[in-house]
Design a protein around this nucleic acid. Structure first.
Lengths: 209, 209
DNA sequence: TAGATTGTTAATCGATTAACAATC
DNA sequence: TAGATTGTTAATCGATTAACAATC
């Protein structure tokens, strides 16, 4: 397979475009130009066309793009044309919020397995999913074939949870613990640190003074 | 003020360095080299030095950096040497998770005001903060001088909440609603879309097949 | 002094923007 | 055909990496 390196920024923008196209489609818009999309999401028209050009030709010169078609194509590119099984580890406040986050379900992510150590939580049902004890992580994740793991445990436990998720066959990890995880290179890893976002804001506020 | 443009990637890395330095300090390490930091957080030593060079000279040639000093300097750069008052709007699952997120408090962010429309929530206390009705947003935010707003309401309400936060005097907004907000250029805005992170992962997984 | 490591410059790499031929 | 808009190439911009003089 030809693997022209795609910038991560392009992937993130494709995700944004897809939401905009979904909305445009709901409003009954049939055809859209790169300029329309660009205005809608705050980038340049050239950027939109360049991002799409990595993956093929989806428009018609002089006309634009068919909204439904382009939306479908982008979802396919993002790997969202099928449902992904996600295992969530850690059912604190953040875990609970993630387990019921509509934005995940809308995009085809199913949090079908939830793990915690708290005996008061294990066995209860959250959003129709029975909470399992973390001891059963390998068995359950492996049996259900979850491809993605979300880590929402305290920082001190994150590495061992990552190790166990990987042993259980997970191929990608979204880590919410504020700690640098060591994973083999073939495992996809993304770290989400919510405080960092606030810090970018305060840096800019502090600059203005 | 000399305003050499600082890459946002640099700010994000400074935030990561600061956590690593905090840990190193707790472990009793007094002096650290750019190579040590680089290994610890997964970047190149040159990158660490370059990032720091935007803001001054903090090390000693042939020796390295004093951990405590460098940590303090970076916190200062990030605007974290004082406490920031943050107003949270929307107390759904995500809002609740954010309101009790330890990572914020540790870094000097105080969520001192919380707003919702649900009568069952208004008047209750969450993490020692009394939940106010959204009708009182302008009055309360203005009176308390909150500088940062966090939007954790459904997408359809996000724009009006943003408008009201800005009218109340907020200078920066962290938006968790999956919608493009329109704000004046002087307002700092960052969008956090949790689903996008999963989509970057699935894109990479889909590529591998 | 010799070894180590910073701060900084120059070289490289990569991403964005501008421009325009192709074409509906 | 004339106007519009894509797809793509070239030019620009910006960020990262490499190299090394400065210096502890």
């Amino acid at each position: 397979m030809k693997t022209l390196k795609i910038p991560e920024a392009t992937i993130i923008r494709l995700s944004v475009y897809s939401r905009y196209l979904y909305m445009a489609d709901k409003r009954g818009i049939v055809t859209i130009s790169s300029g329309d999309i660009a205005d809608g999401v705050g980038v340049s028209p050239a950027q939109v066309r360049k991002d799409l050009a990595y993956f093929g030709e989806f428009g018609t010169r002089g006309v634009g793009y068919n909204v439904k078609d382009l939306h479908r194509h982008i979802l396919k590119i993002l790997g969202l044309s099928s449902i992904w099984h996600v295992a969530l580890v850690g059912l604190g406040n953040l875990g609970l919020a993630l387990s019921s986050y509509k934005g995940f379900r809308e995009r085809g992510f199913c949090i079908c397995s939830i793990f915690d150590t708290d005996p008061a939580k294990v066995g209860t049902t959250v959003n129709e999913v029975v909470v399992e004890h973390i001891d059963r992580l390998e068995v359950v994740v492996n049996a259900r074939g979850a491809q993605i793991g979300i880590i929402a445990v305290p920082a001190g436990f994150a590495q061992q949870v990552a190790d166990r998720l990987i042993k259980a066959g997970v191929k990608a990890i979204l880590n919410f613990a504020p700690v640098v995880l060591n994973v083999p290179p073939e495992i996809e890893l993304r770290n989400v640190d919510l405080a960092v976002h606030l810090e970018v804001l305060t840096f800019n506020l502090a600059l203005q003074k």
